[in-house]
Simulated assay, not measured.
Amino acid sequence: MKRLLRFLPMILMLLMAGVSLHAQQAALPSVTVDFGKTPQGPALSSTLQVVLVLTVLTLAPTILMTTTCFTRMLVVLHFLRQGLGTQTAPSNQVLLSLTLVMTFFVMAPVGREINQTVLQPLNRNELTVDQAMERTAAPLKVFMLRHTRKKDISLFLKIAKAPAPQTKADVPMEVLVPAFLISELKTAFEIGFMVFLPFLIVDMVVASILLSMGMMMLPPVVISLPFKVLLFVLVDGWYLIVGSLVRGYTG
């Protein structure tokens, strides 16, 4: 597990930068073990580059959910749909698409920095894989540490029985990734509660009115749904929700 987490920065670098690598055509299938030469050391061959890209595609969902803002945004949008009570509107596909667009928007500065400082030199064979991994971890850790509670980092440091890091850059990825994830979940539930509360109040008011009128057989949700949608539209809910989520990372 530790070895896999050690390679997460490198995998995320290739995923966000959108590198397209092509293998050299050969008459017969073969495995290339020649890494070539660079001023600093060996370089990756084309075959191993393709293998690395395929690994990225396989681990892409896990990387997206554990090292970016994807989890927080998706949980908040789920709370929003539950609060509205619209069941499948917006659909799961729409929520996932919106979450992906916002995630790419928020992570774009990190991706550009990794592309300029790591990916381009790596393509020019100016860096080794180990050097690229070290450079990639720096901007990624800055982003994750900015949104991770110290309490959560301390928790996983104690579980792993690891020594306290001297600086933020010394926090190992196997500690930072789970700490970042539970911090994001906590923040998402806090925001989800604030989003859910106004709709809950509308439901309670409608239920009280129906009960006072003796209309106990009429489900309150049927009556409250149009009012909740109207409230959400009047306050320009999508503008407020999306704007708040994005500003939570870029502000």
Score class of each variant (00 low, 15 high):
Gly243Ser: 04
Val106Cys: 08
Leu100Gly: 06
His78Tyr: 05
Ala26Leu: 08
Met194Cys: 05
Thr187Pro: 00
Lys186Val: 13
Gln93Thr: 10
Val206Ala: 02
Leu4Arg: 06
Leu14Pro: 07
Lys150His: 05
Ser154Thr: 08
Asn125His: 11
Leu181Arg: 14
His147Leu: 06
Ala60Met: 12
Ala162Cys: 04
Leu14His: 12
Phe189Met: 09
Phe143Thr: 07
Leu59Lys: 15
Leu52Trp: 11
Met144Arg: 04
Val129Gly: 01
Lys37Asp: 13
Val50Ser: 14
Val51Asn: 14
Thr250Tyr: 00
Arg146Gln: 10
Lys186Leu: 15
Ala138Ser: 06
Ile191Gln: 06
Lys151Phe: 02
Thr86Phe: 04
Glu134Thr: 11
Ser244Met: 11
Val118Pro: 00
Gly243Glu: 01
Asp236Arg: 15
Ala169Glu: 09
Thr88Gly: 04
Pro9Phe: 07
Met216Val: 15
Val242Pro: 00
Arg6Trp: 08
Gln87Ala: 14
Pro42Tyr: 12
Val242Met: 13
Phe199Asp: 00
Ala164Gln: 07
Ile191Asp: 03
Val110His: 05
Pro42Phe: 13
Leu12Cys: 10
Val33His: 10
Gln24Cys: 10
Gln93Lys: 13
Phe70Lys: 13
Pro109Val: 01
Ile201Glu: 01
Ala207Phe: 07
Lys2Ile: 12
Ser45Cys: 15
Pro9Met: 11
Phe105Val: 09
Arg72Lys: 15
Thr32Glu: 15
Val94Gly: 05
Gly83His: 08
Val177Trp: 02
Ala169Gln: 11
Phe196His: 14
Met215Tyr: 01
Asp236Met: 03
Gly41His: 07
Leu185Val: 10
Leu122Glu: 00
Met13Gln: 06
Val76Gly: 01
Leu4Lys: 11
Thr167Phe: 11
Phe70Met: 14
His78Ala: 10
Thr88Cys: 06
Lys141Thr: 03
Phe232Ala: 13
Ala132Pro: 02
Thr148Asp: 05
Thr187Ile: 02
Arg135Met: 07
Val175Ser: 00
Thr88Lys: 12
Phe227Val: 13
Met16Trp: 15
Gln131Leu: 08
Lys161Phe: 03
Ala162Lys: 12
Gln49Met: 12
Phe232Met: 08
Arg81Tyr: 11
Pro121Phe: 00
Pro29Leu: 09
Ala162Arg: 09
Leu12Gly: 07
Gln120Phe: 01
Leu5Lys: 05
Leu98His: 03
Leu74Thr: 06
Val75Trp: 00
Lys158Thr: 04
Ser91Arg: 06
Val19Trp: 04
Asn123Ile: 12
Leu21Gly: 12
Gly237Arg: 02
Ser244Trp: 03
Leu157Ile: 03
Ala27Pro: 01
Gly214Pro: 00
